[in-house]
Simulated assay, not measured.
Amino acid sequence: MKIITNPIEIDQALVGMIKKYKNYFIATAWASLGSKASLALLKNRNRIKKMVVGIHFYQTHPNFIKEFINSESVKFILKTSGVYHPKAYLFYNSPEDWECIIGSANFTESALSKNSEIVVHLKSSDPYATSVYETLTATINNYWEKSESVDKNFYKNYINVWKKNQKKVKKLSEQYGRNNSNKPLVKSKLFTLTWDKYFKQIKNDKFHSFKGRIELLDTVQSYFEHEKHFYKFEKIQRREVAGIATSNQSESAIEWGWFGSMIGSGKFQNRINSNNVYISDALDCIPLHGEIDKTNYNCFVNYFNQAFPDGGSGVAIASRLLAMKRPDYFVCIDKQNRTKLCDEFGLPKSVSFESYWDDIIERILDSIWWNSKKPSNTLQAKAWNGRVAMLDAIFYEEK
């Protein structure tokens, strides 16, 4: 008997047994291709006597199912009263000549390459071998009776549902964008806040006025409600929304630099002052009400970048506009809040257009406070309508 804890060694052990033995009895909760063991299995598929694979939570990859459509030796557990969750691999020439691996490792690329796994490697020469062999074969035979072969129609249906659920699966694994966070979400004080606790934090604005921030957001929303397209705004209104209006230019007492002052961005000021049509087109991609998805965001980014053919586009100025039109979905990321906000999620300080949505906004949209019901209290309801933009009140720091 041997304990194996390294996934690469588990993979190697499986490959060795696949090549050595003439018969395979396998039960695994999930399966995929990509590991060395999976490639060896495909080359020796005629040796598979009974392999039973589960599909719970859509963790079995369609690429594995495709290889075994209408198979008489590989079947699938499509429905059970509980979760089908075994991981047992028996390879034998006879009841007196066999080896098996039992433990935590599924027959997936991740389990056999990078996951933390632990298995027991047993042989027919080990103590109580007869009992182990008989128990394994009986158990897998029992699974086999509950399993089914799948056809092309099942495969087509499965792959559609699998694709739809991959986003959910990745989020449950805390996989958002390309940047891997070095901080679990459960350690994020922000992510797990209830609405009441989140409201207390944004109300306790250390540098600016909470009510002043609410007034700013309300005013900008009234602009968008009055005029559908940004290019129809008055010049001073465009400057206010863009965060480049100063107190002596605006008739309002509002501090327009809150939520990200963009006065230092010369090219951005030029585009706003000249009423560049691509800025307006970009904002048209973002609906004023209802849900927003990455398609809306990508549309915005595409038009926004076209306003800067000579360079000068960036996440800071773009996110300022996004936070003004939909403060319930977007926060302006600038040098005053970037460090603390990224630290909160354990992310790199460099934020690209892609990582802004995938790594930051997607995480925010999964938070407890963001998914709370709209409060009945008037002031809280206004804060809730601007709840993502108001993150600036928490992470802002003077430079």
Rank of each mutant, 00 (worst) to 15 (best):
N270P: 02
N270L: 09
G260W: 07
N298I: 02
N298L: 14
E251M: 07
A282L: 07
W256E: 02
A282T: 00
A307G: 04
P287T: 08
C332S: 04
S274K: 15
E255W: 08
S261T: 14
A245R: 10
Q249L: 11
G260V: 02
E251H: 06
D284L: 12
P287L: 13
S250F: 09
W256N: 03
G312T: 04
R271D: 03
N276H: 14
P309A: 07
R326P: 04
Y297F: 15
A307Y: 04
A245C: 12
L322C: 03
C332Y: 01
A245Y: 09
F304Y: 15
L283F: 10
R271S: 04
I333H: 07
S250D: 06
V277K: 09
Q336C: 11
C299T: 08
Q336W: 07
V331H: 06
S280F: 10
K294C: 08
W258T: 14
V301Y: 09
N275Q: 14
Y303C: 07
I254T: 13
F268W: 04
S247E: 09
Y303M: 05
D284Q: 15
S313K: 06
V277E: 06
W256D: 03
P309L: 01
Y303T: 01
R320H: 12
N273K: 10
N270K: 15
G312C: 02
F304V: 02
G290Q: 08
A316Y: 08
P309D: 02
T246M: 11
A323L: 02
W258N: 14
A307N: 01
D328L: 10
Y297C: 13
P287A: 12
W256Y: 13
T246D: 07
A307S: 09
P327L: 12
A253K: 13
S261C: 12
I333V: 15
S247W: 03
I279G: 01
D334L: 11
V315H: 03
I244W: 13
S250E: 08
P287C: 11
Y303L: 05
T295A: 11
L288P: 03
D334Q: 10
I292T: 14
W258H: 14
W258A: 11
G257V: 15
Y297I: 12
N270A: 14
D293C: 11
Y297R: 10
W256F: 15
R320Y: 08
I263K: 15
R326K: 12
Y297W: 13
S274Q: 15
